[in-house]
Design a protein around this nucleic acid. Sequence first.
DNA 1: CTCCAGGCTTTAG
DNA 2: CTAAAGCATGGA
Length: 273
Amino acid sequence: MTIEYESRYFSPRDTLECGQIFRFTPFEEGYKVFSQDKACYVYTRGDITYIECDDRDYFYNFFDLARDYSAINERAKSYNVPLLTRGAERGAGLRLLNQSAEEMIYSFIISQNNNIPRIKGIIERICRALGEEREFLGEKYYAFPSSAALAGAGTQFYKGIGAGYRDEYLAKTSARIKDEGIDMLYALPTPELKKRLLTYTGIGPKVADCISLFGFARRECFPVDTWIEKLYHDDFGGTLKDRNKINAYFCGLFGDDAGYMQQYLFYAKRENL
DNA sequence: CTCCAGGCTTTAG
DNA sequence: CTAAAGCATGGA
């Protein structure tokens, strides 16, 4: 089945290339995108972006299609920050994805002190080794593994697939989640959710913000990484050095829009706009 | 060769 | 409490 949406506020490229997701590959006119055990093919033709998939409800929510991004986009420009305005203008098709919390936990543990191409490779090798084999549009792919499967693999496996020093973080956190689950996290208010996430091995403030923002749809979160730290100095004239304080500054500035603004800014800085 | 990548944990002061 | 060292890997 196919979902259609106006392309002005839904660009596959803008949405996928802004660092919120690591499992996608160029395919024909657009991209194949993978989430949990599901897959879709997303592409734009003229004024319409199309999503071909087997699970309409899942991807409607995944791409956040119920939300009005024209209003968010206008609010971004209203701050009169040149970098943010450029991000909003040239990244107007950027949408925040609603992803799996567990998948975000492991993905962003891997992301720390790492670069995006290598992050993608590590996640791909984990899925290939431990995920269930599926098929989409005549091609095999592998689901993101369950925490039980991840816990069964052990530290040595993660070292073997090139996770580096994050091997123990993945082993410990997957073992804990296999035992405890994460159901108790969903109902927590955002500050408590972040505190709880910080108790997992390998999750610090930045990773907790990414998990909260992308995995728990907490749009008031503002992850501060090396790129945000850079643009904070270059484009906001900031003088703070402590990342927690930089985070507080941006959260105070953007409020409930923080997550959206963070993505526009990250995109603009990384694309050198 | 050094520096850097969507940082975190551990240790020292 | 804050500051800094150490951490695997691969590409520029």
